[in-house]
Amino acid sequence: MINNPITQLEQLTLTSASKNFLRETARWAKFLAILGFIFIGLMVVFAIFATTIFDLAEKMQPGIPGDLGLIMAAVYLVLAIIYFFPVYYLLQFSNKMKKALATKDDDVLAKSFEMLKSHYKFIGVFTIITISLYILVIIVSVMGAI
């Protein structure tokens, strides 16, 4: 058998230190995913009560627009839906990594890394979109000021 670098890479093994690092990473990922789901729940609760809160605020402070509560409810629901996906991918990574390390199943290990890739890909694309929107808002603001 020819021993070239490509063949060597196909036989990557995890040392006990690597397994411990992955196990600890999976624990932290699960912790962050649980916190993420809690915050998603809080966003949904706020969205449900946003119209009531802003109706009361409008009565106390007459300058507040009447439909602001509905707008805020929609914004928080959209943000909760967007935030769900990276949190879900992170939880799936954690669960699959723990299972892969316990069962020594290469397919589950690969699936766990696929979930981690999906998490970071989502965060990366979302970050690019957010930065693009900030740049667009700055350009529009500067053009409006001229």
Rank of each mutant, 00 (worst) to 15 (best):
L32T: 12
L32E: 15
L32K: 11
A33L: 00
A33C: 02
I34C: 00
I34P: 00
I34V: 10
I34N: 00
L35P: 10
G36P: 09
G36K: 02
F37L: 02
I38Y: 00
I38C: 00
F39Y: 06
F39S: 09
I40D: 05
I40A: 05
G41C: 04
L42N: 00
L42C: 01
M43F: 08
V44A: 15
V44Q: 10
V44E: 13
V45L: 12
V45K: 10
F46A: 15
A47W: 03
A47C: 09
A47M: 08
I48Y: 14
I48T: 15
F49M: 11
F49I: 10
F49D: 11
A50E: 03
T51E: 15
T52F: 10
T52I: 12
I53F: 06
I53M: 05
I53Y: 05
I53W: 04
I53V: 07
I53K: 03
F54T: 08
D55V: 15
D55Y: 14
L56Q: 10
L56R: 12
A57H: 00
A57T: 05
A57I: 02
E58S: 11
E58F: 05
E58D: 08
E58T: 12
M60I: 08
M60E: 07
M60V: 06
M60G: 11
Q61S: 07
Q61Y: 06
Q61K: 07
P62W: 01
P62H: 04
P62Y: 02
P62S: 03
P62A: 07
G63D: 04
G63I: 02
G63N: 07
G63K: 01
I64C: 01
I64T: 03
I64R: 04
P65K: 03
P65T: 03
P65W: 01
G66E: 10
G66H: 09
D67H: 09
D67S: 11
D67F: 08
L68N: 08
L68Y: 06
G69T: 03
G69Y: 02
G69H: 02
G69L: 01
G69S: 05
L70V: 14
L70D: 15
L70C: 12
I71F: 10
I71L: 12
M72A: 15
A73W: 01
A73E: 06
A74G: 14
A74M: 09
A74C: 07
A74D: 11
A74W: 04
Y76Q: 13
L77Q: 08
L77W: 06
V78D: 14
V78I: 14
V78S: 15
